[in-house]
């Protein structure tokens, strides 16, 4: 058994908020550069080059690459042999988000009530936190800043099993087609297949934590990722939806067993500011 105090967790979350928003991943920068070289629409290629420049400005000046610095989505993997002392893990994570968004000059984009009282909470909390209990004595925190231009364009469909693989592919491609330029293409597409209503949605979000170039370990699903990417890039949407061949940079699929009567599919779209950073915290001997 190891121990960690929440005072050690707060500054880590604070740092992740800032790093996620200032420093676009190397995988995304490389993917944007490749897309700029491949884009057939000259205006689209120009946009892609400027997006690379945007990422460089954000990195060098330590300013957010996008003004929508998102809701803070956290995936926390808590080792079952780790004891957390202090204020409580959820409160510690929220305190880290509060400090990160304040000190990092990040936009506060959370309202208190979704419908009846849309007043800004002022500190970008609460975060959305997904916990997993895992073997070991470490705490792994992955933070994704998720903007809602892209989040609003996602969807879920409780497909019939008889729809098969075509049903999955068509739903993903249709969702991206309908979204057009709204989610800031070139996009990254997260797909969850299986589980139940909420499980497939969480899988779709979790899929977005992968780096461009990482595939589903299952060879058949990996091929489906490639097929969907090819189909999406034939839609003509292009960078910013102004027409072109580079609509998506990657498709990531995560799956889970499901019920004999169902085949849920969720699509979670990420914009080109695909922001996620992680940290692993080690406990001390108790």
């Amino acid at each position: 058994m190891k121990t960690i105090h929440t005072d050690e967790i707060i500054p880590v979350v604070e740092r992740l908020c800032m790093e996620a928003n200032y420093f676009l991943g190397d995988d995304m920068v490389a993917a944007l550069k490749s897309a700029a070289a491949a884009e057939e629409n000259p205006a689209g290629a120009d946009i892609l080059r400027r997006l690379v420049e945007n990422a460089e400005i954000a990195r060098s000046e330590e300013v957010p690459m996008c003004q929508d610095t998102g809701m803070a989505i956290i995936f926390a993997e808590v080792g079952q042999d780790l004891h957390v002392e202090g204020t409580g893990l959820t409160e510690a994570i929220n305190q880290g988000v509060r400090q990160g968004y304040a000190k990092g000059y990040l936009r506060k984009s959370v309202v208190k009530d979704p419908t009846l009282n849309r007043v800004n909470t002022g500190d970008n909390t609460p975060a959305i936190i997904h916990y997993d209990i895992v073997p070991g004595d470490e705490l792994k925190i992955t933070l994704a800043s998720k903007g809602f231009g892209s989040e609003n364009m996602g969807g879920i469909k409780m497909c019939k099993p008889s729809e098969g693989l075509d049903g999955v592919i068509n739903f993903v491609v249709d969702t991206v087609d309908k979204a057009g330029g709204n989610p800031c293409p070139p996009i990254v597409v997260g797909v969850g297949v299986g589980g139940d209503l909420e499980k497939c949605a969480i899988l779709a979000k979790k899929a977005l934590l992968r780096s461009v170039g990482e595939h589903n370990p299952d060879l058949e699903w990996s091929r489906v990722e490639d097929d969907i990417l090819e189909r999406i890039n034939k839609l003509g949407i292009g960078p910013q939806g102004l027409g072109g061949t580079q609509t998506a940079l990657a498709v990531f699929i995560e799956t889970y067993p499901t019920h004999i009567a169902g085949m849920p599919v969720a699509v979670n779209i990420n914009c080109h500011s695909a922001r996620h950073k992680e940290a692993v915290l080690k406990g001390r001997d108790a």
Partner: peptide, 8 residues
């Protein structure tokens, strides 16, 4: 405008 090019 260029969506997501907030810093630019």
């Amino acid at each position: 405008a260029m969506g997501g090019a907030g810093a630019y």
